[in-house]
Computed example of a mutant assay.
Amino acid sequence: MTDLTWPDAPGGRASGFIDGPAGAVEVDIELPKGHARGFVVVCHPHPQQGGTKDNKVVYMSARAAREAGLASLRFNFRGTGNSEGSYDEGRGEQDDLRAVRDWAAAQSGLELAGLAGFSFGSAAALRVAVADGAPSLVTIGLPTGYFDHEVPRPPGPWLAVYGDADEVIDVARAITTCRELDEPPELVVLEDAGHFLHGRLTELRSHLQDFWQTDTPAA
Rank of each mutant, 00 (worst) to 15 (best):
A14T: 02
G50H: 09
D210G: 11
P21V: 04
T214Y: 00
E150C: 06
P10H: 06
A129I: 09
A172T: 13
V138S: 13
Q213H: 06
M1Y: 04
E191C: 07
G23C: 01
P21I: 02
Y87V: 14
A36Y: 00
Q209W: 04
P135C: 10
H195G: 06
A36H: 02
E89H: 15
D192R: 11
L115W: 08
V58H: 04
V138I: 14
L187A: 11
M60G: 03
T2C: 15
F75D: 00
A165I: 00
S122V: 09
D166L: 07
H198T: 09
A71P: 03
Q107D: 14
E111C: 08
H149S: 15
D96Q: 14
G109F: 01
V58M: 12
W212I: 08
E180M: 11
D148E: 12
E89R: 14
R101G: 07
N82D: 15
E26F: 05
P7G: 04
E84V: 05
R127M: 12
T177Y: 12
F147E: 10
Q48H: 05
S15M: 12
A123K: 12
D132I: 05
R74V: 10
R127W: 02
T144M: 04
A71Y: 02
E203Q: 13
I175A: 09
R179G: 07
L112F: 09
